[in-house]
Computed example of a mutant assay.
Amino acid sequence: MMENTDSKRLLILKILSEDDQPLSSQIIKERLQERGTALSERTVRFHMLALDKAGLTEYKGKKGRYLTASGYREIARNQVYDRVGFLSSRIDELSYQMNFNWKKRTGTVLVNVSLVPLENSSVVYHLMAPVFESGLTMGQKVAVFCPGEKVGDVEIPEGYFGMGTVCSITLNGVFLHSGIPVTSVFGGLLEVSGSRPDRFAAIINYNGTSLDPLEIFISSGMTDCRGAAEAGHGLIGASFREIPASSLDEVTEIHQHLVEMGLGGILKVGYSGHSLLEIPVADGRIGIITAGGLNSISALVEADIPVRSKALSGLIEYDRLIMYTDLFEELGRTRS
């Protein structure tokens, strides 16, 4: 890992992290220009060679370069923020667009989409089930997408199936449409000890990043969701939100109904003026820690299955979701 990765190289790493395929120096040059950084292709190659040498990128011949696990860790360590507030704004926008009615159990919810090779479909349920059973992920429902289907701007390619996991931002949408404002503060790695949330080991503020924190942590190999679910000790993705203190009773009631319909995700609640897992909560506010929607997918990545995920992918109808207990049978149909 580089001791002093300068801003241009960090921006190159960020550009590579946004794409699922290797990028050439020419494409990287164009992406840099779009962000207001003008470099010659020769200069870009110079920086790329330095990143290769540091083990942060790897050259794939004519296809270009891709980001290594060390590269993702470098992004997480330096918190590459080239578009301040981008993710925070997207969270607010998608929360507003969501129209799920928890009383009628109809409408749209927000999902993350993960691309999983069809050849791995037989083991997916067995790896994911313990995470769902432990309650360390967002709800207990998922959606399965076939090749050719499109969710948001993600299209499922041939040779893959799509796993739609409920994004924790769904809670924002539900509360918002109930008249309860929600402030999403940060996403982080939550240490679980004795099957209970213990402390945050790393955090990335939403109002300062264009990357989803959990995507970074998963790609960097920093999670241990299987350990947390199966042994009660590990690191999972989680987020920290705040709501008005006066809304606590209503939020508690709504969340109880969401749990009944497979959409619960709150792990811990803090009170006004008191810290929550060492995170201070302002007067007049309530702190909420929610489980990451991609935690069940982390179990696949930790088992060395080559999964590609995109958080906050798009909105789908609630009735498209199935209980995770039906996942084995549903995936069986993708193999037939």
Rank of each mutant, 00 (worst) to 15 (best):
M323H: 15
E278N: 13
M261K: 14
I289C: 04
E278W: 01
E260C: 05
I305M: 07
D283P: 00
I286G: 02
L263S: 14
L315S: 05
K268Q: 14
L294F: 02
L315F: 00
S313W: 01
V301Y: 06
I316C: 08
R285D: 00
Y271V: 08
V301G: 09
K268I: 07
Y318L: 01
I279A: 09
Y271R: 14
M323Y: 13
L277E: 06
G270P: 07
A311N: 07
L267K: 03
G292H: 03
Y271D: 04
V301D: 07
S272T: 12
I305R: 09
I288L: 15
L276V: 06
L267G: 02
G292L: 02
I286Y: 01
D319V: 05
I316Y: 08
I297N: 10
S313Y: 01
L312F: 11
R308D: 14
I286C: 10
V301Q: 12
G265S: 14
D319C: 04
L294E: 14
T290S: 15
I288T: 06
I289K: 03
M323G: 13
G292V: 01
A282N: 13
I266W: 12
V269I: 15
P306H: 12
L312K: 10
D283T: 14
M261V: 15
V281S: 07
V301N: 07
G314L: 05
L294G: 01
S275P: 04
E260P: 00
T290H: 01
G273R: 12
V307L: 11
S296P: 10
H274M: 12
G265K: 07
I279H: 10
A291G: 07
I316A: 09
V269G: 03
R308L: 14
K310S: 04
R285A: 12
I286F: 03
S272R: 10
Y318Q: 01
G293V: 08
N295F: 04
Y318V: 00
L263F: 13
L315Y: 02
A303Y: 00
E260S: 14
G314Q: 04
L276S: 10
G287P: 05
L315Q: 07
E278I: 00
V269M: 13
M323I: 00
Y271N: 11
K268D: 07
E278D: 15
A303C: 08
G284V: 11
I286V: 15
I297D: 06
G270L: 08
L321T: 08
Y318T: 00
S309N: 13
E278M: 02
L294H: 06
G270C: 10
G273F: 13
V301F: 05
L312H: 08
Y318S: 03
G264Q: 06
G265H: 08
A282I: 00
Y271K: 13
M323V: 00
I266F: 12
L263Q: 13
G264H: 09
I297L: 15
H274A: 12
H274T: 12
M323E: 13
I289H: 04
I297E: 10
S296E: 05
G292Q: 03
G292S: 15
V281F: 09
I288K: 01
G284T: 10
V281K: 05
